[in-house]
Every structure is written in structure tokens, then in C-alpha cells.
Nucleic acid binder design. Structure first.
Lengths: 109, 109
DNA sequence: AGGATATCTCAGCCTGGCGTGAGATGTTGA
DNA sequence: TCAACATCTCACGCCAGGCTGAGATATCCT
């Protein structure tokens, strides 16, 4: 490929800096195997921490730390199990996930 | 919300570990303001390094380093300008960007 | 009540990755 | 040919962020 449009080389300075802060923050949340694994597992329905820790081969406090990040970002919610309240079941906030997807779209679209 | 389906608490162990390696790598590429800014700017057409460095408020060697990462991932291509071959114009490989978007979709979808 | 289970929080360590500076390569114009 | 320009590459120093271990909280079972 050869760039053809600017026949005379005049690098356009003063181009607007693109606003990618939201997309970068969103990507940062996905750029970890445990957080990405959590979001992937929760796409199929709620899971408790011990289930996810076992499936991901990670310690529970590590998973808990990452869940705190996702919770702070509003991507997941927790609620105790009806019959056995020891277990915290997490579920995705699909609306927040959609917003995150949209912010990535501003870069990739 | 209260989890209702498993009335008796029986955490399902032995769940399959989700394969998120590609999505994590993709997110890692986006999780930097310079790389995300580059991809965003190139969505509107080719740009040379000095244009992007100026718009992003970054040094050229930093931009060049990030372009090398994106090039290694196959997301961008470079070609010299026709009239003034000093300038390297970069363009997105839209097919590769689509693959990256798809890999993110395996986590978010 | 007391022990066991599930989860959370925090401090401390450690590694990956970013920015910078210096030098190398290729291109243009005088 | 030589200076200026555009870009690349690499080594080095630094810091954000992940893992770990220890301790705290909440819940269940006997």
C-alpha cells in the first residue's frame, strides 16, 4: 500500500487528541486472565467465589481481590445464596458490560 | 437479587477453565492510552508517526515503540509516503482489528 | 458456644511494562 | 557530500499492579 491522498507531504499538526480514557480503563479491566475468566464464566450465569477460584486455578483471596475491582467498576453484583448464605453468588450487570463494550467500540469501531 | 436455581448449596467444582488468553492479549494491547489513541486515530485514515506523536502529546520514540507492538500483533501496517519517503504512514489492518474485536467478544458476549 | 467454612481486606514483596536517552538507519535538500 | 529530518532499536531506571500470607468478618453445623 502507498499513501496517496496527501501528494505533498504536509504532516497535519494540531490534530485533536482522541479521548480514549474510558476505553483504556475498560481494557485494563479485561487485561488480566482472572478478571477476564470471571467475566466469561459469569456470562453463563451466577457463580460463587469458590467455584470460580477452582475453575481458574487461583486462590480465593486473589479472586476476591479481582472481584472487588469488578464490583468497584459496577460490572458485577454479589448476593448470598438463599439456602446457604455462606456462599456469595456473583452475577454480571449486563447493562454495565454493554457500556464497557461500547467504550471499547469507540476505539475499535 | 437472590440466586434461586441451586436450592441446595452445592458449589459445582470441576468447571471448565474458560479460555480467555486471546482476549487478555487483545485487552492488553488496548490498555494503554498511546496504543488506544493510535488505533483510534488510524480508524479515520492513515497517519504518520509525527502526526500521532503530536496529537497524543508523546515523544516519537515512545509512539514508535507502541507502533512496534501493534505491528507485531498484525494490527497496523506501515508504508512510506509517495512524495516524501521520510514519512512512514501507518494504517490499520481492519481484518486483524475485527479478529481482535471478536476475541474480546468471547469474554463480553 | 465453638469449630469449620466462605469470603474479604490489607500490607509487603516482586515482576512486567512504560518512559527516557543515546545511538543507528534511511531519506531529503542544499 | 553533508546537514537536517523522520523513524527505529535497545538498555536502563522506575512504578503500577498482581500474588501471597495473615488476620478479620459472616455464616453454618453440632
Amino acid at each position: 500500500m502507498r499513501a496517496t491522498l496527501p501528494v505533498v507531504a504536509e504532516p497535519r499538526l494540531g490534530l485533536a487528541a482522541p479521548d480514549v480514557a474510558d476505553a483504556v480503563a475498560a481494557a485494563g479491566l479485561l487485561a488480566d486472565p482472572i478478571r477476564a475468566g470471571i467475566l466469561r464464566m459469569l456470562a453463563d450465569g451466577p457463580h460463587c467465589v469458590c467455584e470460580m477460584a477452582a475453575a481458574l486455578g487461583a486462590r480465593d483471596n486473589a479472586v476476591s481481590n479481582h472481584l472487588a475491582r469488578l464490583r468497584a467498576a459496577g460490572l458485577v453484583r454479589a448476593s448470598r445464596h438463599d439456602a446457604n448464605a455462606r456462599f456469595l453468588y456473583y452475577e454480571r450487570d449486563e447493562r454495565a458490560v454493554a457500556r464497557l463494550t461500547a467504550s471499547l467500540g469507540t476505539v475499535l469501531g
